[in-house]
Each structure stands twice: as C-alpha cells, then as structure tokens.
Amino acid sequence: MRNPEIEARCQRFMDALAHIRKLGLRVIQADERRVTLVLPVQEQLSSGKTNTYLLGGALTTLIDTASAVSTLCVLPEFEIAPTLDLRIDHMKAPTHSRPLYIQAECYRTTRSVMFTRATVYQTAVDDPIAFGIGTFMRLGTEVVDPKMRAVVEGEIDSYDADYPPVAKQEGAQ
C-alpha cells in the first residue's frame, strides 16, 4: 500500500541533496519497506558519442540513492545512515532513450545495520537492467543535524532556510 507521508518524506530527503536535484530524481511510490524512483531521460546524460556504456556511472548513483532512501521508509525517525558498502550486478545495458526506474527495499534492520536490495529496470521490474545490494550503518537519532531532520520532516522548505523557523510576526507590515 502506498504511503503518501513516506513518499513525501523520501522526496524531501532527495531534494536536500544537491546532486540529486541536478539529476531530477523523483519518487514514484513508497511504502513502509520499499521505494520506487525514476531517473528521467535528460540531455546531460544523452550527449555521448557512443552507445556503449552510455549511462556508465549514472546507474551507480541511482542505485546508491534509492538504497539509502529505502532506509528512510523503515526508520520511524530520520537518522543519518552512511553506506558501508554497495555491490552492483549489471544484467544488460539500458536503453538511453527511456527513463530508468528503480525499486529499492530495506529488507532487514538491526540496531546497528540496515540491509537493502534494489532492482533497476526500464520496461518491467522482472526484466532487470541491474541489481544492487547495500549495507548501511545506523548512527542513531542523537547525531542527526536538527536542521536536516527538519528538512526531511517537512518543517522547513530547504536546507538554506532559517532554522529554527522564524515565526511570522503578527501585525507586521
């Protein structure tokens, strides 16, 4: 079942990351365990002079991001969970004229570690382009930057905004 609250939280987290804004990654859907993202077709990734390995590297960023975002689906409160490792298996080359979709799932969470798996596809999830397996380390809620937490939880619009939010003054001109 789609969870609009988790979807919005995932998108706010991604929008706080400069590189992800540059790539225009969007949340398609999310629930308490998994997230689906799309990397739209874009000029900056299609200007290559060859068809081989055209999206080289971009897939890696997509998988890393979706795997990290899937941990947000599971965590009751925002935590910083740095990636310990990531492994990617490439099944076949993607078609560069189509968007890339990724479904990522955080399938196991312990006190210290979170495990994720992700599938990249273009036509259907059972016709995979690549698989990714990731491990993340939980640092706990106490080390979270309060401003970043406020961005992810939607209390302020962006990391550049004032924090704590400046209350609107009544009667101000």
Partner: peptide, 13 residues
Amino acid sequence: NLGNPTLPAIHGG
C-alpha cells in the same frame, strides 16, 4: 556533487 548538506559531503553515489 554534494549529497548530505550537513558536513557537507560528496554524495556517496
């Protein structure tokens, strides 16, 4: 190329 704006850090991907 930045990810987490807190440090700030380069995006892991």
